[in-house]
Design a protein around this nucleic acid. Sequence first.
DNA 1: TGCAATAGTTGATATTATCAATTATTTATT
DNA 2: AATAAATAATTGATAATATCAACTATTGCA
Lengths: 146, 146
Amino acid sequence: MEERNLPLGMEVGKMLREMFRVLKKRTCEQAQIKLTIEEFGLLHAISRKEDDVIQKDMAYILGKDKSAILRLIDSLEKKDLVRRVVDANDRRKNYLMVTKNGEKALKEYVEIGAKLMTELQEGLTEADMNTFYKVVNQIRSNSEKI
Amino acid sequence: MEERNLPLGMEVGKMLREMFRVLKKRTCEQAQIKLTIEEFGLLHAISRKEDDVIQKDMAYILGKDKSAILRLIDSLEKKDLVRRVVDANDRRKNYLMVTKNGEKALKEYVEIGAKLMTELQEGLTEADMNTFYKVVNQIRSNSEKI
DNA sequence: TGCAATAGTTGATATTATCAATTATTTATT
DNA sequence: AATAAATAATTGATAATATCAACTATTGCA
C-alpha cells in the first residue's frame, strides 16, 4: 500500500468532489436558498459555536485566510443569512449572528446533508468512521505543527 | 458522534488545506519547477497509468470536468512537462506523454510528498490508513451511484 | 450518404484562495 | 499623556480552478 502515499490528497479530493457534486445537485433541487458549499460550511460553523464568534476565530476554525472568510461573510450577509454585530466594548471585533433566514436555510441544508451522508456511509460501521476521523484529525494536527 | 454528520466535508477540507499548505511551502523551497497541487496531481496520474492515456480518461479518473483537465494539460504542456500525441489511427484521441522534464519535476515532487506524508501519518498505523482509504473509497463509490 | 457517437476545444462566468498593505481600535509602554 | 505595539478587520490585486453549454473534428454504423 506504499504506493498510496501522497495520492492521498488526490483520492480524498476526488471523494469530496463526488460528494459535493451530489450535495449541490440535491440542494439545488430541494432547498429554497442557494448556498455554495463554502457558504454552507461557514454558516454551519457559526451556528454551531455556542460562545461568541468573531471573524478571526472562524478563519482559524475553518483553516482559511481571514480575507477569504471576510468575503464569505460578505456574501452571507448580502443574502441576509448572517449579521455582523460590533462588540460594544471593543470596536475591532465583529460578532457573527445567524439570522432567522439563516437558521431556516441552514435547517434545509443540514437535513439534506444528513440524509445524504447516511446514504454515502452505507456499508461503513461506526468504528470505520471513528478511525476515519482519527486519521483526518491526526494528519491535520500534524500539518499544523509544521 | 452523530453531530459529526456533514461537517465531514468541512473537516476533510480543512485537513486537505493544511496538508497542501505544507506541501506547497516545501515544494516552493525545494523543487526547481513550480507546479500547483492540481498540476502535480494530474502529472502524477498520467505518469502512473501503464496503458495509454487520453484526456477523457484522465477527467474520469480524477473526477474533474474535461474542460478543467484540458486547461491543466495546456498548463503542463506550456511548462514542457507533458506532450499531446495524436493517435495515428483515430485523430480524435490525444495520448498524453510525460516528458523528460516532466519525469524530473515529478520525481522531486513525489519525494517531497512522500517524506511529508510519512511525517503527517506519524501516530497512525497501517490498519488505520487502510480503514481510512476504505471509507474514502466507499463514500466516493456511493456518491458515483447517485 | 447521413446520422449518431466520441474526443477535444472554447468562451463565459462563478467561486475561492492568497498575499501584502492598509485602516481602525485597543493595549502596553515610556 | 503620548507613543508604540498588537489586534481585528478590510482592501486591492492576482491566480487558480470549476462549471456549463455550445461548438468543431473525427470515427463508426446503418
